[in-house]
Design a protein around this nucleic acid. Sequence first.
DNA 1: AGCGAAAAGGTGTATGTCCACGTATTTTCT
DNA 2: AGAAAATACGTGGACATACACCTTTTCGCT
Lengths: 161, 161
Amino acid sequence: MQARSEKASRKSSAAGVAPLSDCTCFAIRAAMRNVTQFYDEALSSSGLRITQYSILTRVFERGGLTMNELADLLVMDRTTLTHNLRPLQQQGFLELAVGDEDRRQRRVMLTPAGDEARLAARELWKVAQERFDAKVGADHARALRSALLAVAHTDLGVSRD
Amino acid sequence: MQARSEKASRKSSAAGVAPLSDCTCFAIRAAMRNVTQFYDEALSSSGLRITQYSILTRVFERGGLTMNELADLLVMDRTTLTHNLRPLQQQGFLELAVGDEDRRQRRVMLTPAGDEARLAARELWKVAQERFDAKVGADHARALRSALLAVAHTDLGVSRD
DNA sequence: AGCGAAAAGGTGTATGTCCACGTATTTTCT
DNA sequence: AGAAAATACGTGGACATACACCTTTTCGCT
């Protein structure tokens, strides 16, 4: 029994109906799924997922940051970061140190083993990135990346903590 | 102890180093997190998440599809769809029917209760969408959506099943 | 008819994501 | 100093995502 509270006989893209393809959030999530699968598959032999590679790379670029600072840089919920750090800590890729001046803080440090994993994954990442650029066009990819980073840092009025 | 296998004293955006901000996958995931939080918060009083709203809307637009067909339309892994349907089934918003000709198939049907939930959420979705468009500019939002849908449907060589 | 390949779908596990809530520590105010 | 507020962070639960593996059913071929 298919419910029909709107006239489904006419195309749903008609004025006022708003098909799913109009939803920016659906579009970004669908694209995310496709792109993440591609990058994760490219990185698979390294044992790192793209999220983990992102975290290790950020910590390499800016080591010794607190959880809050790192989460902000990653545009990631603080508690999400806590969960995501667990497997990386268990593998010995990252370590947490209590802050010197403020003992509430946890400073995230990259270990030598973590840096090795990052370097190995970086080679695989490069291949994926180049292949993606070739698929969609390098210029378009750069423009898209720029637009996405802008959206990522746009304050949409989400109450964060 | 901060590992340093590259000269971190010079800017990591220098040639050959590839900072995290160059990663298209990180950019799309970061933007996804920000945008999803915004839409989910807007939909929260409806009891639906944006993923659930997307599924209900797709089933409304194209009812009676099989799992494979629906997963393809949603650019979602088949097994992810299976998991995502569970809470919607338990709430009585969707029903699965064994296929008439092929008993392996499951046809996904929207229930009247599911359509009610969809309609209620749609009003909240509209507000979020309009507010997003106002934030980033309607033209830019439309172009971004279009580009993201194209990326979502680009064959990047991911082996699906 | 019967057998092996292919297709449709579910389950289990691990990670990713975020909210509500709780704990420990620091800061602020009186 | 001491209480209250603010801050930094963790935990538990629910949904989101995808891979490896499994079962059921259908198809293709002899």
